[in-house]
Structure formats: C-alpha cells, structure tokens
C-alpha cells in the first residue's frame, strides 16, 4: 500500500553556539502524516547527513511525553498548538498540506541556546537542587498506609507532580518566569504530610534559586498554564505565593 505524504515547508532555527548569531533555514519535506515531529527531524537529518551537511541539533529521550527532554516552539507555541501534548507526541497529521511551519528553540535568557534547537535548561536543575525533594531516614520501608491522606489532597499533589520539568512554562511566559515549574515542585510536597517538615524552607530556597538563575517574575498572564504539556494549574502558583508569604512570617531567619 502506498502511503500518502504531506508536503511541508520548514523554517528551522539554526545557530552554532550560544554566542553566534542564529537565523532560519528553510527545508522542504515530504513526510508521513503518522510520523511525529521528531521522526520528521530524524528523516531530515538522515538526508542532511547523506548530503554531507550538518544535521539539526534537537533534544529527545523517551518520545512518549513523560521525560520532558524534547521541547520545540512550533508556530509560536511551546510543544505546538495542540493542548496538553509534548513535542514528541505532536504528529504531522496536525498540519495541512503545503503549510509553512516555524520551529524555534525555547527562548529565555536563562535558557542559553547550545546549538540549533537545543537549550541549556540547567537553571531548572538548580531550582530543584535548592529544595525540590523531601528528606527521609533510611531503614526499612514504612507501612504504605500508615499516614492517611484524603483522596482530594492526594489527587492535587499528583496533579502537581505531573510536571515533567520541560521548561515550556518559561518558553511561553513573556517574562521567562519559571514560576509554574517552581510552584508544581513546591505543591507536590506542600500538599502531603511527608512534605511538611521542610515546607517553608523549601519554598524560600526554591524561589531564591529561581530568581538567581535569571528567570523573570510572574505577572499572572497564565500563558504557562495554557501551554503546559501536562496541564499544570496556576492554582499551584497561588499555593506557592501563599506559602512564600507565610514562610517569611514563620521562619526564624532574620
């Protein structure tokens, strides 16, 4: 059976390094509607290598929307226009025959471009290291249901824990703020009893790390929530704001 392919014009951002100047390069591709946008890049890169050209650098890992490694800005939308979908799950059937697609890297001062579509997201790691964990004593595993948690609270915590740390919130934000990310990481522990001992130090340290990594401030435009591939709610940002306020009154640091 012969497969029908769709013809697309790609405008892909090419940039050699963080310091060099980038520009768009145009490619004409004929691609199966069933392939994902990353598979399309794989095919295109094979072609470029055969032609002796430098392939396009982009990141990916699991390709099933859970690792947070991939992340492209497709026609102005981080992870593409389709809601709650990561770049790797974006299929070429979402595009029309003959369409021109602009593909850019995540843009933020805190995400310097490494090459082409790859950016350095280690700013998010610094935030995580500042407090995105809960400490436990080692030893035998505690009883599973020793601490009771209501279904509603558990669901909210799990919703926050869905954050894959891809950085789309930063890419979508006009201020390049990572507050949706920080708030998800703060909330997943703040909601649960196990997260209480470090609750207020955590929010303080993570917000400080956020500001130091060069991200902007949240001005409540909610673009992050609209573009998040995991649908993380801005109610997490509200919870983090509240915890940050309380932490300033509670903690003994002067």
């Amino acid at each position: 059976m012969k497969e029908t392919k769709i013809n697309l014009t790609l405008k892909v951002w090419r940039q050699e390094s963080a310091k060099s100047k980038g520009n768009f390069e145009e490619f004409k591709v004929a691609v199966s509607p069933h392939s994902s946008i990353l598979e399309m890049f794989d095919e295109l890169n094979n072609r470029l290598e055969l032609e002796g050209k430098i392939p396009i650098a982009f990141e990916s890992d699991c390709r099933e929307g859970i690792c947070g490694t991939c992340g492209l800005v497709i026609n102005g939308h981080p992870h593409g226009e389709k809601k709650k979908t990561a770049t790797c799950q974006m299929h070429m059937r979402s595009f029309k025959e003959g369409e021109t697609i602009y593909i850019e890297p995540f843009r933020a001062k805190a995400f310097p471009i490494l090459r082409d579509l790859m950016v350095d997201r280690s700013g998010l790691d610094k935030i995580q290291q500042a407090g995105g964990y809960a400490s436990f004593n080692t030893g035998s595993a505690p009883d599973a249901n020793a601490i009771l948690i209501s279904k509603e609270t558990a669901s909210l915590a799990l919703d926050a824990a869905e954050c894959i740390g891809c950085g789309a919130c930063v890419a979508a934000c006009k201020n390049s703020s990572a507050m949706l990310f920080v708030s998800a990481k703060v909330s997943q522990f703040a909601l649960l009893p196990q997260g209480q001992p470090e609750r207020y130090e955590r929010v303080q340290n993570m917000v400080i790390a956020h500001d130091e990594s060069g991200f902007g401030s949240c001005t409540n435009t909610y673009a992050c929530e609209a573009e998040c591939p995991k649908g993380i709610s801005i109610s997490n940002i509200a919870r983090m704001n509240r915890d940050y306020f309380v932490s300033n009154l509670k903690l003994q640091n002067v």
């Binding site: 602009y102 201020n175 435009t221």
Partner: peptide, 20 residues
C-alpha cells in the same frame, strides 16, 4: 527586569492564543 529576562522574541508570536 522581565524585559531583560526575555530579550529574544519568537518569529511567530502566539501570545494572543494563550493569554489575555
């Protein structure tokens, strides 16, 4: 400060589809 944090704009601006 927020201008400084986001110096490079996208070629395609889809802001009107994700914020007011």
């Amino acid at each position: 400060e927020n201008r400084q944090a986001n110096p490079e704009k996208y070629a395609v601006n889809a802001a009107k589809e994700n914020s007011t």
